[in-house]
Each structure stands twice: as C-alpha cells, then as structure tokens.
Design a protein around this nucleic acid. Structure first.
Length: 125
RNA sequence: CCAGACGGCUGGACGGUCGCCGCCAUCGCCAUUUCAUUUGAUUGGGGAUGGGGGAGGAAAGUCCGGGCUCCACGAAAAACGGUGCCGGGUAACGCCCGGCGGGGGCGACCCCAGGGAAAGUGCCACAGAAAGCAAACCGCCGGCGCCUUCGGGCGUGGCAAGGGUGAAAGGGUGCGGUAAGAGCGCACCGCGCGGCUGGUAACAGCGGCGGCAUGGUAAACCCCACCGGGAGCAAAACCGAAUAGGGAUGGCGCGUUGGGCUGGGUUUCGGCAUUUGCCGUGACUUGGCCCGGCAGGCGUGUUCGCGCCGCCGUCCGGGUAGGUUGCACGAGGCGUCCGGCAACGGGCGUCCUAGAUGAAUGACCGUUCAGCGCCGCCAAAUAUGGGCCGUGGCGUGGACAGAACCCGGCUUACAGGCCGUCUGGCGCC
RNA sequence: GCGGGCGUAGCUCAAUGGUAGAGCAGGAGCUUCCCAAGCUUAAGACGAGAGUUCGAUUCUCUUCGCCCGCU
C-alpha cells in the first residue's frame, strides 16, 4: 500500500462534499471512497491531505498543527487505515497542545467511527 | 553609585536520537519514447546509501517608492490622486542626512503635514452689546440745556481706560498726555514696507520708515508649485491530455414530393466547318446545393410538445486541466583605502549565500549560559528588619514570529542580553 | 496578490465639527388580589493611541478586530 498526498484544492473539496466526517478534540477527520481509476494504479492506495484554517492561529501555529498531524499519520495510518479511500485531516486549536499519545488515540477513534479501519488491524497500536 | 538621553550589535551554545525539503554522486526497481537491435544508450517515475546546503530583524502589516513583465499610447492641457520650510543623498520615495523656524525639557536631547488667509467662498455653537463690519451692555467724562429732596438725575455730545462674556473683542507693556480718553506722543516688544550685511537657500542680524491697516480656520472648499499611463509573477513565455466545438481530407451512407439554381450523359432540329467537332434550341435521363411539405431516426418528457439530423477514420489550428521556464549574480554581502560634517559616493580585493508550491528548519533527551524565584553564607552596620555587591544550593527557564518574483524605506510585534557616547544628581579622592 | 466596507448603550440602528438619541432588553416605582399590558423614573456607549482645531463620534495618521469582492 502506498500513501499519496492530496495537494489539489479540488481533492479537498471532493472529500469534504462527499465523505464521512468525525470530530475529536484533537482533530477532524473526513473520509471519502476514491473513484476507481482516479490515480490509475491497480494496487491498493490511499490519499491523505492536511489542512488548518486561520482559526488555528498564525502561520507558525498552522504549520505546527499540520506537522503534528503528519507525525501521527505516519505512525497510525499504514497499519490501521483502510485502503482505496481519501482522508483529510483538519487541524484545530487543540491540535497544538494535545499530548501526542492522545492525538494518536483521536485519530484511531476517528478511523473507527468513520468505518475506515483496515481489516485485521483492530488491535491497539 | 543612582536616574536618564541617544546610537549600534545580538535574537542562545554544544552533543545525541528520530524526522522534513531541494541539489550532487553511486547502485538497484518499475514503466516507456527514440536510436542502433545478444543487449546497450536515452526518457520518465519511485527507492536505498553517501556527501553537501536549507528562514528573519522584523520573513509580518501591505502604508509608500522602484526593478521586471504584459497591455495601452502623438504631445500638452483638463480631471482625479498625492506631496508641501531650505539644501543635499538616491534608481526612486511620503525615506534618509545636514541646516532653518516653532514648541517641550534643568540638561543630554526630543517633537512638528512647517507653502498661501490684503484671489474668492464657507464656518466660528453656547455665552456676549458686538464674532468680522466696525460697533457700545455695564461704564467714564469737561461744556451746554432742563429738573433737583442739592447727594445727583435726564437730555445733547465726547470716549473705549476699567468691568463682564468668550478659545478669540481691530496690537501688548510702561510713561506722558487729557474733561475723560485714544499710537494722540514717546520707549521697548510685535506687525508691515523698503534697505544694508552674512548665508547656495530657508533664514538671521543691523539700522530706517509707517503708526496698526491685516482675527482664526486651508488634517473646510480652494489657490500655487512639483510628481503620477494601467495592471500585476495568479504578470508573462513555452509545451500541452481527455471531452465538446471549428477547419481540411478519405471511405461508407444519403426516403418521397413540389419549386429554383447548377453540372454530366444520350439525342431532335437549325447554323458554321474538309472530318473529329463547335454554337444555339427542344426532349429524355442522372447527380450536387438551397427553400418548402410529408415521412423517418435520435434525445428528453406522463401527454401535448420541444431540441438535433449523416456515421467512422486521419490530420491541422486555437485552447482548458496540468507541466516547464520566469526563479535566485543582485541598486548583492564582507574587508580596506579615498572624498564628504553626514546621508552617501568612488576605487581595489574577496565571497556566492534558501528556492518551497496544501508550501520544507521540527520534536525529544542530556550538559551548559544569561535571566527570574526561594533558602543560606561572607562582608557592611550601634542594633532589628529590608535592600545592593560577592558567593553556595534547589527550582524555573529562552520572546515576536516562517521566505513565496526581487530590492529600498516606513509602521507594528518582541523574553531578554551586550557595547559605545553623552546629560543631571549624590558620595569619595 | 489587488480592492472595498464597518466598529456608537446588553442587542438592533441614528446623529452638519458644538451637551450623543430612538426602539427592545434589564433596574426601581405606580397600577392590579396576582401576572401581563400600560404609565413614570434613573442608570448605561462613540474599538485603541497620537495629531489638527477654541472644541473631534465626525477631519488626518497609526494600530487592533470583523465582514465582503476580484484573481
């Protein structure tokens, strides 16, 4: 399984419009099934995008929120996230101060509530 | 030592672990274009290892000024916007430097949109008699007239000192003068006019004349002088998928009927010609295009109805998504010498120093360095408490904030630290 | 990147450079057996800092916050 970064505004809009959504104290997760052949590859893949609005804070705070989300994704997603989906993680103000282990728990919980856990990988990290 | 003014620098250090974004080298993997065809070179994607690089003084706000790119354009004026003491610096500026004038501070020093109010218009609330044109509310006053309770009152006149209102009342202070007063006279100050001297100038100084005429407001309209074409790297250039539409071209297909235009074939008659034939004319037949009717097909809709009318392939151009360039050598940094009070300019030497694009520099740990808090020790002191300096232990502990085409300024945010110059005060020698 | 607008009482909005006003809400009182409605009454604000002016919510500059448009 390979991870693909979502980088186009159209991708973010599509996920926000058509996907499931779940909010935790540390982050907001949006998930959408990806259309067949969107990226052409036959093997299993998933797309991940990160975003943080101006409400999180200034540029330093927004970049920091997205960095923490990337770090949590690098630990949790490869084992626990279902493939052939696009994920968008939205940073919140609490993303900056929340302990990192709890941030990982938030991500895992959000995956479960959006029915996006990978098969056979439901044990704790 | 305390309090303060100004200018400049800095924006933690070292090590370890795990990570991020470009670049270079080497080595695998996947796909594939082109060239030669054991296979290699080339192109694209992704990976491993090693090497090297990777945010700021404000990168910020976007308040000004430029470079650069594209568009427009004969010049000027008008309109609109901006700037506004003088001189200099600069690519340019609303910036900077040096002066001048005004204001504040004991002082070092700081602040000022600081042209024009005798070109015109508007406004100046409340109060006040009066707010711009000269007037007189309470008042002051010699003479004359009348009245009188002999204190004075009224009228006629003269005046603006004093009172009062106001932010501001048609120069201010003092002396003289007068019935009382008044630039009425004089001195000083202010103002205006013209002169001399110094200064590039703003302006300053000196002496003369006038005798007050000219209230304030231009960050009210306005006048004068100067400056300004517009848009912005999401500019702009190049490459360019799929779909739809446009053009060219090949193949196949192209109902029926009426009319019009036009082309081909067969042929009648006439004319010309030596023959093939040419011209005109009529008949039959066969295509193309246009208009109309009927029929048909496709799409949509419950129906009425509405819309469209060839299909397939190849090529061409415009152009969207996307990509590449623009894009990191520049009004560049550092050092030094020269000119200049300075801003800055010039010469020489030397260095290359971020290029991301949902956007890279971070996280954790240890040691350390300032700082801060608490507790002690030494010293000082008549004593107690507190503070300063030195020193020990423990704890705490690093701000504001992230390049987005580039540069010069301004403004704003910021834990703190360091250096230099200067001012005022206290103490000691 | 470019441009526009708005900050006034707890809320929604007014106001030529001259004492900031209205409606609703909240407080007190009157009225009623009680409540509502009604009547009376007092309190309450110019986002912040400078400047111009005799005087600033208004004019100018800086700054903070919010909203909107184009690309």
């Amino acid at each position: 399984m390979n991870l693909v970064r979502l980088k186009r505004r159209a991708d973010f809009l599509r996920v926000a419009k058509s996907g499931r959504r779940y909010a935790t104290p540390g982050l907001v997760l949006q998930v959408a099934h990806r259309q067949a052949g969107t990226f052409g590859g036959s093997e299993a893949s998933l797309g991940i995008g990160f975003t943080a609005s101006k409400k999180v804070g200034n540029a330093v705070a927004r970049n920091r929120a997205k960095r923490r989300l990337r770090a949590a994704v690098a630990i949790v997603m490869p084992r626990h996230a279902a493939a052939n989906r696009d994920y968008v993680l939205i940073g919140r103000q609490a993303t900056l101060r929340r302990p990192f282990t709890e941030l990982q728990q938030d991500l895992l919980k959000a995956l479960g509530r959006t029915k996006s856990l990978a098969d056979g990988a439901r044990d704790e990290p």
